[in-house]
Design a protein around this nucleic acid. Sequence first.
DNA 1: ACAAATTTGTTCGTATGTATG
DNA 2: ACATACATACGAACAAATTTG
Lengths: 249, 249
Amino acid sequence: MLETSMTPATLPRGEGVALWRQIAARLEAHITAGELVAGARLPTEAALSGAFGVNRHTIRRAMEELAGRGLVRVEQGRGAFVAEDVVEYPLGSRTRFTENIRAQAREPSGRILRMREVEAEGRIAELLRIRRGRPLLVALRLGMVNRRPVVLGHHHLPLHRFPRARALLQANPSITAMFAEHGLQDYSRRITRITAAMPTAEEAGLLEQGRSRPVLLTEAVNIDADGAPIEVSIARYAAARTQLVVETP
Amino acid sequence: MLETSMTPATLPRGEGVALWRQIAARLEAHITAGELVAGARLPTEAALSGAFGVNRHTIRRAMEELAGRGLVRVEQGRGAFVAEDVVEYPLGSRTRFTENIRAQAREPSGRILRMREVEAEGRIAELLRIRRGRPLLVALRLGMVNRRPVVLGHHHLPLHRFPRARALLQANPSITAMFAEHGLQDYSRRITRITAAMPTAEEAGLLEQGRSRPVLLTEAVNIDADGAPIEVSIARYAAARTQLVVETP
DNA sequence: ACAAATTTGTTCGTATGTATG
DNA sequence: ACATACATACGAACAAATTTG
């Protein structure tokens, strides 16, 4: 294991390479060599500081580096883990969460966290091209890949078009399936706006990421075959685990 | 400053126009008049409530109005700021910084901050489809809109194909112009990968944004008419000022 | 690592004027 | 004339986030 292969405790000091860099490089080598598989837990900071004969701060600095580069993920009170590989999320007209994840040989899942009915207003009403005051269902959905949360999306659905949305989503947390149950076999994504932001405490918790890591923020409009908007989603992706990919043919 | 021009503390009360509306209107006038430039910080709620002689709640109600209309952005623990206009950055095959900004009736500019020659390696070599060790020019370019920095890009250019890149960029910091000078009239963007990250201190400084605000991180590959990669750029966008837009026709 | 200061966010309660039926 | 609802405005206290030392 790690302790055995890296206990050669003596790191060269004062030779121009900071200790934390050397430690980060060693840990990285272990990870890329596959000795530590994705999701595996690293030794505690205390254990590492003992093994390398350095202060815990030095270990933390190395971890920070690795976390910053997305190789490990540190969770307060739990430990440090080898980062899962990044989910690629193509943004094409036929963007489907489930299909896309399956295509990457991963296991998609989802959960509806909250649903509430509101009146359409402002920007959402405008994007959906409906009048203000029309009833909307707003579903908060957590999308997961290999059981790890990746995306938190607010889905705005016009209830006059999808009257059974609430019940259907209750039973099956797939937006696509809900559309299909309403007779909508095909839809496409028309526009996606992307920016980045810091998560709220709740968002960070749900996405299982630190408060200090950013989220990708997207606003997307889905349309039916006739070009009529059917859904507006505002989604937050754990940036450390997601890469949006735009291919232009 | 603000205090002087708006201290006429006495707002007409009981004349049919709510205090918070009057305050919102005044603040709006200051903003649209350009006395408060984009990104500038407004006085604190306490200061404003003192200046106008009203309760803090009344100020907050006015702020809420302005924030709702997107004129200001309020951040807990930090203050209220005049909203910067967001640059829309379409990610299509013909993505050109200069043209795009001009199309939004804004003034684009750019500056080459650093250039250095390196040997192609790892991922960059792979994306450019050249052998490792081939000479590359890496140009660090700061893209600005209306004189505000927006994007910081590392442009990786194969020197065997663009031997005069360095001199040309020195004279004119436009990548497109440099391509044209080498006889490349048209090129297109093939793929863009997008994620988000926190900036380093240097990046934050150059982008004139706080270290606690995220950047959009993109990796893009540009190709010539024959589909051969000609440039790989790794760019960081000030997320608060940028929206990447993907339209799918 | 910790504490202090600053600033916005939230939640009580109170009071007043206006429109409605 | 009265009751009710609603928006406006003020006050106090506390919570939460950020910055600074």
